Computed example of a mutant assay.
Amino acid sequence: MLETSRGQSPAPTREPRGCLFALSQPPLMIFLAVIGVLLLLAALHDLFLL
């Protein structure tokens, strides 16, 4: 039988990063917080001032 292994071990494969990793990034969280505050202000404006 032919020897197919090489002298080196294969390089470790990097795990794919999913949605939770993307959501944990500070710039994205700041952006989502600003959008959330704007939506909250618009909803409060509609409820109490119109």
Rank of each mutant, 00 (worst) to 15 (best):
G18K: 07
P27N: 05
F21V: 10
A42R: 11
R6H: 09
S24G: 15
L50Y: 12
R17I: 11
A42Y: 04
F21W: 11
L2F: 02
L39N: 14
A33H: 00
V34H: 01
H45E: 06
S24F: 11
G18N: 07
F21Q: 08
E15H: 06
V37T: 11
P16R: 14
V34D: 12
S9C: 06
F31D: 00
L47E: 04
A11I: 14
S24H: 13
L49Q: 04
P12N: 09
A22E: 02
R14G: 01
F31C: 08
E15I: 01
L44T: 07
D46Y: 13
S24I: 02
E15R: 15
L50E: 12
G18S: 09
L20Y: 04
L47S: 07
P12R: 15
I30Q: 05
L38C: 15
T13W: 09
Q8Y: 13
L47T: 06
G18V: 01
L20A: 09
F48L: 12
H45C: 11
Q8E: 15
R17E: 13
I35D: 07
L23T: 03
Q25A: 10
M29R: 10
P26E: 14
R6D: 07
A33Q: 00
P16G: 08
P16I: 01
Q25I: 03
C19S: 03
C19L: 13
E15K: 13
L20W: 12
R14L: 13
E3P: 01
L41A: 15
G18D: 08
F48C: 03
Q8G: 13
S5A: 15
I35A: 12
L2W: 02
T13N: 06
P10V: 08
L38V: 11
I35K: 02
C19N: 02
P16C: 03
P26V: 04
P10T: 05
L44A: 14
L23P: 01
L2V: 08
V34T: 11
I30V: 12
G7A: 12
P16N: 05
R6A: 14
G18A: 11
T4W: 08
L32N: 03
L41Y: 01
M29K: 12
P16F: 04
A33S: 12
V37M: 09
L40H: 07
A42M: 14
R17Y: 00
L38W: 08
H45Y: 07
M29E: 15
P10F: 05
L44N: 11
V37K: 03
L50M: 09
Q8V: 15
R6K: 11
A33E: 01
P16H: 09
H45W: 03
Q25N: 03
L49R: 06
M1L: 06
E3T: 06
G18H: 10
L20C: 12
S5Y: 11
P12T: 07
P16K: 07
L38R: 10
G7F: 08
S5V: 07
A43M: 08
I35W: 02
L40E: 06
A33R: 00
A22S: 04
L44H: 07
T4G: 03
G7T: 08
P10C: 13
Q8C: 13
L38K: 09
G18I: 01
G36F: 05
F21K: 03
